[in-house]
Design a protein around this nucleic acid. Sequence first.
DNA 1: CTCTTAGTGGAAATGGTTTTCATTATTAAT
DNA 2: ATTAATAATGAAAACCATTTCCACTAAGAG
Lengths: 157, 157
Amino acid sequence: MPGIRLSTSPWWQARFRGCGYRWTLGREAILEVLSKSEEHLSAEDIYLRVHPKYPNIGLTTIYRTLDILTDMGLVWKFDFGDGRARYELIEGSKKMHHHHLICKGCNRIVDYTEFIEEEKELVKKMQNSLSKKYNFKITSHIIQFYGFCSKCDKQKD
Amino acid sequence: MPGIRLSTSPWWQARFRGCGYRWTLGREAILEVLSKSEEHLSAEDIYLRVHPKYPNIGLTTIYRTLDILTDMGLVWKFDFGDGRARYELIEGSKKMHHHHLICKGCNRIVDYTEFIEEEKELVKKMQNSLSKKYNFKITSHIIQFYGFCSKCDKQKD
DNA sequence: CTCTTAGTGGAAATGGTTTTCATTATTAAT
DNA sequence: ATTAATAATGAAAACCATTTCCACTAAGAG
């Protein structure tokens, strides 16, 4: 019978179960929102996008799920300095590996993918060396540039 | 007459005045603490170190002064993911330019200075290119590695 | 020394995130 | 299918770093 969705839940479901977590509607909803968005969403952003379709999923669940996702390594948690964390799917996202320019004036975020290869090379080298020297198992890194976008640069007195 | 301190207040005083700010006891105390410490201090850390000598300087003043210092570019404000900001003097510090390894287990911070030259080179190149492409005036950057220190790596199940 | 106003402290407010707890829903066992 | 064990949930309350308010104080120009 056509029209029946055999699976609304991708490989995440298996991943969740594999980690000993249950697969719930809320988690599916949150991953759906994250996977459809190309932006850096705050917990509240996600809540607002989940809410129309699933009105009885609360903010608390969003936070709890995001924590789990971050721990599982599926989601990146960012701090752009405006007092609220931003979340972004790592794998499964259509976006390629990227970093951020952050405007200190208006907090606008620009994603960039330039120099990623060169950066990767350096990061790899650093990671190897630092791991050994400081006996530290490095799992991830963050690179961010801060400054002023054209609009905010003009406005400055 | 020997023994008289001609100036407890270094060039910061001039810098403050130059920016239109007044030079106050609180600001001197905070800069004194920052300049004597080699660590990444939270606002409360600073408060606790200022307090014995200057008991009537409040946390509010600490926060306000740190904001100013950050804006003036004298202090770096870091987020290591534990819910409180950390502050570190940039210039005037005995420490050289460095970045951080952050343990996701115990939140221990390791400073490192390796690869700074190579990094600077890449950063410079990126900065030039990104500035042009995105019309963004880049003023600073952050590089942080996350992982697990030897102790926390062992503890993991 | 005086006046203007930036700076201050304490208390209260703020706001993102976390905790509590009684209820619900998922999953494994029957 | 039914049930039993317990993970997950929502709402409200708690938390806690930071900010705001406001009456008071003190820096520094004149």
